[in-house]
Computed example of a mutant assay.
Amino acid sequence: MKKISLPLAFLLGLSAPAFAGDATAPVKEIMDATMKNWSGTDADWIDIFDDSRLTRLYSKDFVTKYQAAVQNPAADEDGISPFDYDVIVNGQDACPLQDLAYAPKPAANGTTEVVVTFKKATCMDDGSDKQAVTTVRFEVIDEAGKPVIDDVITAGDPGQPDNSLKNTMVQIAKGE
């Protein structure tokens, strides 16, 4: 296979991709684990922040904030996670996820936003809107030539701003 140098590619009117890899790849791995976690089977819970995923799928800045949050004495009692909820479904309860869809946005300022939608309450009998669609936005950046998740954004409570997982980790590290 013949390689074309970037200056030659520019002269030929070709543009270089924003990422060396697929920006949805780390998001899909996290969502696959989340789908398995809420599948309704007795499968072991998959930690989306275990060491192998943390260093491979997340940005260095995200990892630093996560590691600081884990050190906080208020971290979850299981000693595994600083969170007492699933940060992807944005809650402690969910049903098997349905109607999962990915929508990567065009890269802007070095970040590709991958919007993931799904239904998480289809089995609930507590008055939840069973057809409500949950939206999670993953901010993916290129680090060392590969796409990594730099932040996870979920919807805030009604009338409140959206939640940045990185901001939440900073607050946990401060003991807030």
Rank of each mutant, 00 (worst) to 15 (best):
L14D: 08
G175R: 04
V133W: 08
A173Q: 03
S5A: 13
T112D: 05
V152E: 10
T111N: 04
D44V: 11
E139Q: 12
I141H: 01
L6C: 06
I172E: 11
P73H: 06
T55Y: 12
D86T: 09
E29C: 00
A33H: 06
A69H: 09
A23T: 09
N72K: 05
E139I: 00
V116A: 03
I80K: 13
G13D: 06
L100R: 08
A18F: 11
L8Y: 05
I48A: 01
C95Y: 10
P158D: 10
T134M: 02
A108W: 05
L14P: 00
R56D: 15
G79K: 05
L8R: 09
F83I: 03
V63R: 12
V115L: 08
F19M: 08
K60I: 13
L57K: 01
K3I: 15
L100M: 15
T111A: 02
P73Y: 10
V27Y: 06
D150W: 00
A132H: 10
P161I: 13
P106I: 00
G21M: 03
R137G: 02
L165G: 00
L12S: 08
V148A: 01
V170L: 05
N90C: 00
V115I: 15
A20K: 12
D162F: 01
L8K: 12
A132N: 07
T41C: 01
K120C: 03
T34W: 11
T135F: 04
E77R: 07
K166P: 00
A74E: 15
A103T: 14
D84S: 05
A9T: 07
N163L: 14
N109M: 10
K105V: 08
Q67E: 15
T55W: 07
K120S: 15
A108P: 01
A20W: 13
M1Y: 10
V63N: 03
L57D: 15
S59W: 12
A18L: 01
K60R: 14
K60C: 01
E77F: 08
D22G: 00
Y102P: 02
L12W: 14
N109L: 11
A23G: 06
A121D: 15
D61Q: 12
D162Q: 03
L8N: 06
K119Y: 07
K130L: 11
E113L: 04
A43Q: 09
M169A: 03
